[in-house]
Nucleic acid binder design. Structure first.
Lengths: 218, 218
DNA sequence: GGAATCTGATTGAACTGTCAATCAAAATGG
DNA sequence: CCATTTTGATTGACAGTTCAATCAGATTCC
């Protein structure tokens, strides 16, 4: 017999396949951030999600596939975020570059949990082939888009320089800042992190970027 | 003194404390690079060194202390490398900055094994307090030195900009490039890696740096 | 009722840390 | 200069723990 209160208080025991998978993936991100890759166990993930550990195997077949799905989730989320930012930006290459760089620090993307999870996947040799399978093409696409935009802005602004290398610098500055946010005892805040990437952009494109980001008066 | 043949044919079963510790540390770096932090076991380290796993505990008390000693070793080696490079450079801040940046790509430091080991320590949440204890002050010292040099060069060259942020950009570019070398399927070579950091330096200090590094005609 | 979902006990493998025995080298003594 | 003793490095077996994966059975949904 199911009472009304019971039905309200207790969420459906049975969630849809996708909802349950997502719940386990989010728990995996949280556990990875707290305990690290090495100590991310199915038991801990299940406990965090309030489920039994057998369920993780039921939905993902193996721990390895759960981790792969987690990486896929992060990768897709990241890609959707920068593509949405690009879609909302104007046609001017400087605006598009600014949108791309700011997107990496969007509150939904740049959370301690997610940064830590990314770092775990980068750092763990064991996960490297998986990373390349799941993220290699996304990373390449991002790099290609950014390089093309840098090339356009170099022409438009009459700047000297090598588009590929400038794009790579802008890219690794973001990754490096992310790494700083993870490894430093007392990291600087989001504000200062963005000021750092704007400093890099301003160095290459001084008439289009300043310490606060995109210069509108150009 | 042991005879020459003896030294070559049969390595002494008994090495000095320091030699044995170093041997185990080097084996740890190799195993971390190959199997990752999560699958770095005392047994595997010992096997790599041709010793029994009990010996690792005998010399380091615990796995955790072996990993801490390994991080210490990497950290000291890194620090000695950049300090030696600085000592060999002229007084001109641009020369000193160039020396510092080139030092990170010295063949002794920038090996696949060592890069992978660094990435493992960065990525593993579990090792983060240890990293801060053992490397926090070294990282800070490097950053302070670099910032001071950037400040000097800004004044000397009459460049605009914020020394702290420029120093941070130069620093994270190197770290980001290191990360690229680890995570990319087909990474660019050392030559291109250095060209990338020179592009960053040239963006901030265009009269002192070019695509090939330090400009001598300034 | 039957399929899909979920639980928790169980199994077997792998790992860390411990310890008593062993052994090579150094120290000591004759 | 050789024999004996001592030292401490080294081994390998063992105990205790943790974990991934399995599975039989319970529960829930349609």
């Amino acid at each position: 017999m199911v009472s009304l209160t019971e039905a309200i208080a207790a969420p459906r025991r049975k969630l849809s396949r996708e909802e349950r998978r997502l719940q386990l993936i989010e728990a995996t991100i949280a556990v990875m951030a707290e305990h690290g890759y090495a100590r991310t166990t199915l038991g801990e993930v299940a406990r965090r999600a309030g489920l039994s550990h057998g369920l993780a195997n039921f939905h993902f077949e193996s721990k390895e596939k759960l981790l792969a799905a987690t990486l896929d989730h992060l990768s897709e989320e990241y890609r959707a975020n920068w593509q949405a930012a690009l879609a909302a930006a104007s046609d001017h290459p400087a605006d598009r570059i600014a949108a791309l760089m700011a997107a990496d620090f969007a509150p939904a993307i740049c959370t301690p949990d997610r940064l830590a999870a990314w770092c775990s996947f980068w750092g763990e040799a064991q996960s490297r082939p998986m990373y390349q399978d799941h993220c290699g093409s996304n990373d390449q696409e991002y790099q290609d888009v950014l390089e093309r935009l840098c090339d356009d802005l170099l022409s438009l602004g009459g700047y000297p320089g090598h588009a590929g290398r400038i794009a790579r610098v802008l890219r690794v500055v973001t990754e490096g800042v992310w790494l700083n946010l993870m490894t430093m005892q007392a990291p600087y805040d989001r504000e200062e992190a963005m000021a750092t990437v704007w400093a890099a952009a301003a160095a290459f494109f001084p008439r289009h970027f300043g310490a606060e980001g995109r210069l509108s008066g150009a």
